[in-house]
Design a protein around this nucleic acid. Structure first.
Length: 711
RNA sequence: GCCCGGAUGGCGGAACUGGUAGACGCAAGGGACUUAAAAUCCCUCGGCACUUGCGGCUGUGCGAGUUCGAUUCUCGCUCCGGGCACCA
């Protein structure tokens, strides 16, 4: 296809020369407290036999193999991306070169919520339950408390109570249900009373504590103050278990009554039955209530993010091994930096052992770096998204043997001016890379905050109803088209089909047109070969209509093509602009051959075609450039200059409307003023017919464009 | 359910900040050249109708509105695509 890559900078992320640095970065992050290990419920892909990060689960299925994922409890390593949540959010505002769509998706993914945290003391106990809420204004409407089944306090709450067995079996059932749950359906809400109560610090009221299947341990605190009157989920739960519903925010013009409410009221309004806060506007009340909690030291303002830490453990037989050693005596030990890289077994041997690492005893057995005793290696490998999170930075010093990055080189090249990728990475790769850039900055390797200044998200190519992708295998091999038409026609055709950001249903119909077009350019050059040997100049001002018109059209085309490419990579319109120019050259050299075509203008226009088409059609243009006797190659020739003066039309078409409908078009000089335009319109015969002698009420003149006569 | 996009001829797609809708190309039909074919060139190509005329009406998913004028702006729908989804 004639793509130009600098192979001197080639890197392979599966090569130990690359991932040794990744392992080093891991260790440095570990030292900085940005890596930790924990046991959680993870997304397990049955087919890939590995854990997946949350953003790698698409519609409940693995992003890679499309198989459904299941929850599973296991240990894994995590990157503390949440430490950077606020910065990643703030940074979005600086990404002016990114599509708004991607910025919005990331903003939603980070999911910042501002609200209040508040402690509810447990009755007859020293424990307290901390909740997070975005609706502190509804705190007087709390009628029960819901805990996630995984909440650590449950055990203490139920021990010895008559409800103990019931709650325990409820938790067990819920956990099993969660394992089975498919993502597309929310299970019905269930709960179980713990027998325990906590105290609403604002009212002093006893609040019954429930365990509920819909409360997420991973978000907020795993405990929710339930306000059924003002929260849909609490409402549903309250109705099911006959718990009281107490409205405390009255929206304007509505009177909420607990017994007749059909659904929770989410509207803002005025507080009722809310102690000292009664009568306050709900927005104001939010602030006042948070302040009150802060003063009394049982709560305060709090921010929660939806973003979770990035689970990077994978159980695949590929990826960079996580450089950790487990010693029975010394515990978890980082692999000393001078022992890096930890090499992935069998990676360089395609027929080698391709079992997951935990099945490879040779790999696992090692010695403890601290005590020298027998120890075991970590068998998880890193998510391959880790590798793609910093490769662009490694390109700036690809052979560096001393460090992952050469800060000086990285400062010179980064951030990446223009990044191109599919929208499917809007969150995954593009968020990880933004995170990693900051981590590398804080580790002292980079001095930028954002990796990519400008982002173009290209559309997907659809084939047979689903997106064309390597992993799906429904790709169209361009070599078929290349064999038949050549690489340039194939390039031209693909670029002409649609603007790059749009999805495109693949269809090779139309490729003939691109082929025909290049042939036409070729024929024009051959037929007018002689003009290239003439070293003529011309007095532009003295050109006749035909030559002057072509000269002008050529400059207009330079302007349009430059604009289309620079502005938004709309090669399709760039190409059609050149097509127009070529059509005009064709007309002028065949039809108008009676008038003498200036060799200078002809040469200029044909050369411009080659220059403008060069990015799209490099081989052909370079060949023609040489053929037409140029000493230097096109590749080293500068882009043509756009001269707006030369592109200016001498004549314009004045559109005349009567009551907004186009009735006539009149040619006029480009410098015509508004008064002249009006005069032109009012004396135009066709226009007068439509006026039928009526007096114009109003005449609107748009300079150089149109006259609208209202009668 | 919520948040983003999008909808223009038979098709892919143009139309700058409201100002000539359909650029450019494909497909289709007709014609020229040719013994024939390919290639090339010319013409037609949104719809409607009593088309005498270089003409008229209508038309950018649907319905309203703002405006002298709306593919473009506002409101309300329909359909399609994408993202999120018990996030308290």
């Amino acid at each position: 296809m004639g793509l130009s890559y600098d192979w001197n900078r080639e890197i392979a992320t599966c090569n130990p020369k690359y991932y040794r640095w990744e392992q080093l970065i891991f260790l440095q992050m570990l030292k900085k407290g940005l890596v930790y290990r924990k046991e959680t419920t993870v997304n397990w892909c049955v087919d890939c036999k590995t854990v997946l990060a949350r953003e790698q689960v698409i519609d409940g299925a693995c992003w890679r193999c499309d198989q459904p994922v299941q929850p599973r409890t296991m240990h894994g390593w995590f990157f503390k991306i949440t430490d950077y949540a606020e910065e990643l959010l703030q940074g979005l505002d600086t990404l002016t070169g990114w599509p708004e769509k991607v910025v919005t998706m990331q903003r939603n993914w980070i999911g910042k919520s501002q609200g209040m945290s508040c402690d509810f003391p447990v009755e007859n106990s020293n424990e307290k339950i901390t909740i997070f809420t975005t609706r502190p204004d509804t705190i007087f409407g709390v009628t029960f408390m819901s805990l996630a089944v995984e909440h650590p306090l449950i055990d203490a709450l139920i021990r010895g109570k008559e409800q103990e067995n019931e709650v325990r079996s409820f938790i067990e059932e819920t956990l099993i249900e969660k394992q089975r749950a498919t993502v597309d359906q929310e299970p019905e809400k269930h709960g179980s009373f713990t027998g325990a109560y906590c105290i609403n610090p604002f009212t002093g009221e006893r609040v019954p504590i429930y365990v509920a299947n819909f409360v997420l341990m991973e978000y907020g605190t795993g405990a929710v103050m339930a306000v059924p009157a003002h929260d849909e989920r609490d409402f549903e739960f309250a109705r099911k278990y006959n718990l009281p519903i107490r409205p405390v925010v009255q929206p304007e013009g509505v009177t909420l009554k607990a017994d007749i409410m059909q659904e929770a009221s989410l509207e803002p309004g005025v507080l009722i039955d809310s102690g000292d806060f009664t009568g306050m506007d709900s927005e104001k009340a939010k602030k006042a209530i948070i302040e009150f909690a802060e003063q009394k030291k049982f709560g305060g303002p709090h921010i929660t993010y939806r973003l979770r830490d990035w689970g990077i453990s994978r159980q695949r037989y590929w990826g960079a091994p996580i450089p950790i050693i487990y010693c029975d005596k010394c515990g978890i030990q980082p692999v000393p930096e001078d022992q890096l890289p930890v090499i992935l077994p069998g990676a360089d041997d395609p027929d080698g052992p391709h079992a997951p690492l935990h099945q490879q005893e040779d790999f696992i057995a090692t010695t403890c770096p601290t005590c020298g005793g027998p120890a075991r290696r970590e068998t998880d490998t890193m998510d391959t998204f880790v590798e793609s999170s910093w490769y662009f930075a490694r390109y700036t010093s690809p052979r560096n043997e001393q460090a992952p990055l050469d800060t000086e080189a990285a400062s010179y090249w980064l951030p990446v001016d223009q990044y191109i990728g599919g929208v499917e990475h809007a969150i995954l790769h593009l968020l990880y890379s933004r995170f990693f850039t900051r981590v590398l900055r804080d580790l002292g390797y980079l001095n930028i905050d954002e990796p990519f200044s400008n982002l173009l998200t290209q559309g997907m190519v659809i084939k047979d109803g689903s997106k064309m992708s390597k992993s799906k295998g429904n790709v169209v091999d361009p070599s078929e088209l290349i064999d038949k038409y050549g690489a340039d026609t194939t390039r031209l055709f693909s670029l002409f089909a649609a603007p790059p950001e749009r999805d495109l249903e693949w269809n090779a119909q139309g490729v003939d047109g691109s082929s025909r077009f290049l042939n036409k350019v070729y024929r024009l050059i051959i037929a007018n070969e002689s003009c290239f040997s003439v070293d003529a100049s011309a007095d532009i001002a003295a050109l006749d209509t035909v030559n002057g018109g072509l000269y002008r059209k050529t400059h207009q085309t330079i302007g349009r093509v430059t604009d289309s490419i620079e502005n938004n990579f709309h090669f399709n319109t760039a190409i059609s602009a050149v097509m127009e120019l070529v059509n005009q050259i064709n007309t002028v050299t065949t039809k108008d051959s009676k008038t003498s075509i200036s060799p200078f203008v002809l040469k200029f226009s044909l050369e411009t075609c080659l220059l403008l088409l060069f990015p799209m059609v490099p081989h052909f243009c370079e060949e023609m450039w040489e053929y037409t006797g140029h000493a230097t190659v096109l590749d080293k020739t500068t882009w043509p200059d756009f001269d707006p003066q030369a592109a200016r039309e001498e004549k314009i078409t004045v559109v005349i409307q009567v009551n907004g409908k186009v009735r006539s078009r009149i040619e006029a000089g480009a410098d015509i003023d508004n008064l002249q335009m009006e005069e032109l319109a009012m004396t135009d015969e066709r226009t007068l017919q439509f006026l039928k002698g009526k007096k114009p009420k109003k005449i609107i003149v748009v300079k150089g464009k149109l006259v609208n006569i209202v009668v």
